[in-house]
Amino acid sequence: MSALKWGQGKGEGAAGPSLFGLPLSPGHFVLPRVLRRPVRILARLGVGEFQAPRFSAAILSGVLIASSSAYGAYLGGDVEGIVQSITARTGFAVDQVKVVGNRQTSEIDILDRLELDGWTSLIGFNAEAARERISGLPWIEVAAVRKVYPHTLEVRVEEREPFALWQQGNDLSVIEKDGAVIAPFSGGKQVLLPLLIGAGAPAKAPDFLAKIEKYPELASRVKGYVRVGERRWDLKLDNGITVKLPEDGEDQAIAELVSMDHDKGLLSRDIAAVDMRLSDRLVVQLTPEAATQREAALNEKPKSLKRKPETKI
């Protein structure tokens, strides 16, 4: 007989509702639907009428063991690994990675920084930590890592902008416009970048290269910009000629150089260097071959001219 009894009338002798023999109220009393089943079970437990389901002891033991294991994992710091293992085997393992925006950085390097092991769960994956690791790559300026459920990672990067190559001794590096070194020279399209040589070159290069670029014909022939003594520039041209610019007044010197080349073909001659360091003169140095030819030509001329005998009239 149930321990929860409801009164059927209001007359004398009508039994009121009771739980474990305790009256609840003199009138009608209705429990919320969600509480009715738990209350009935508790009432049956009170009078010994409730029978536990089969295997309940095994279930309770399993729950106890599982909760103990979870608590032990929490204390030992292994919760993340357990979550990764369970969720990866239930359909959330990362099996696709999309990389967008990389030009100089290889996808292999980016994947290596993600630290995926084949059973990495998207749920437990730390996207922020992965973003910081990717941001540490030489060419990466900005990185973003996004989870796309159920099993995809999307990596978007913005790379640093190369400005020039900088040679110091035997070291050749790719630099930004502000002179910051990005990475060692690795070939490919990087060979098309302007070549700066010497200490102090990166700091002065942006303004100086802008002056040269005003004269496209000259700029296309320059293969190297040499900073001399951190005071002035030499230009190394594609035909081997070196143009030595002055410390002061380099704008005027560049304009004169372009004008002489246009009018007289100065930079197409067989010369080794054009020295413009002195403001009042221009010195041209011949190549060894040209110097030899010039000396031979001079030696072929007669040392003196024979005078014709005078004729008396």
Rank of each mutant, 00 (worst) to 15 (best):
V174Y: 01
A291T: 13
S2W: 06
A164Y: 12
E289P: 02
A130V: 08
I241C: 03
S68Q: 05
S68A: 15
A164K: 14
A66G: 10
I241S: 02
R156T: 13
L35T: 06
I41V: 15
Q168M: 06
G48I: 12
L286P: 04
E250C: 02
N126H: 07
V63H: 01
M1Q: 09
A183Q: 06
R281P: 10
P309E: 09
P23N: 07
L137P: 03
I254R: 02
G265R: 14
R232G: 01
K303V: 08
L111F: 08
L111Q: 07
V228S: 12
P206K: 13
L172M: 09
L192R: 11
S68I: 09
G7H: 04
G7P: 07
G101R: 04
K264H: 13
Y149R: 11
Q51I: 04
L218S: 04
K308Y: 09
D178A: 12
K211D: 02
E289W: 00
R131W: 00
L193V: 12
I313A: 15
L60I: 14
F163P: 03
E217H: 06
L282C: 03
F50K: 04
T152G: 03
E12K: 15
Y215W: 10
V222L: 03
E159K: 07
L282A: 05
A273G: 06
R133V: 05
Y225K: 00
L122D: 01
G48V: 10
K10I: 12
S106H: 12
V83R: 02
G77Q: 00
G229A: 03
I140M: 07
A296P: 02
A201Q: 07
K177P: 01
E107T: 14
L237E: 03
A57G: 12
P302F: 10
E161V: 08
E300D: 10
L116H: 08
L75D: 03
L31G: 04
L153I: 15
Q8V: 15
A273Q: 08
A219T: 15
A203Y: 06
A180G: 00
P194Q: 09
V258K: 05
A290L: 09
L75A: 09
N299I: 12
K98D: 11
G179Q: 07
L305A: 08
A203D: 11
R231T: 12
V99C: 04
V283G: 02
E128H: 00
I212Q: 04
E80H: 05
G13H: 02
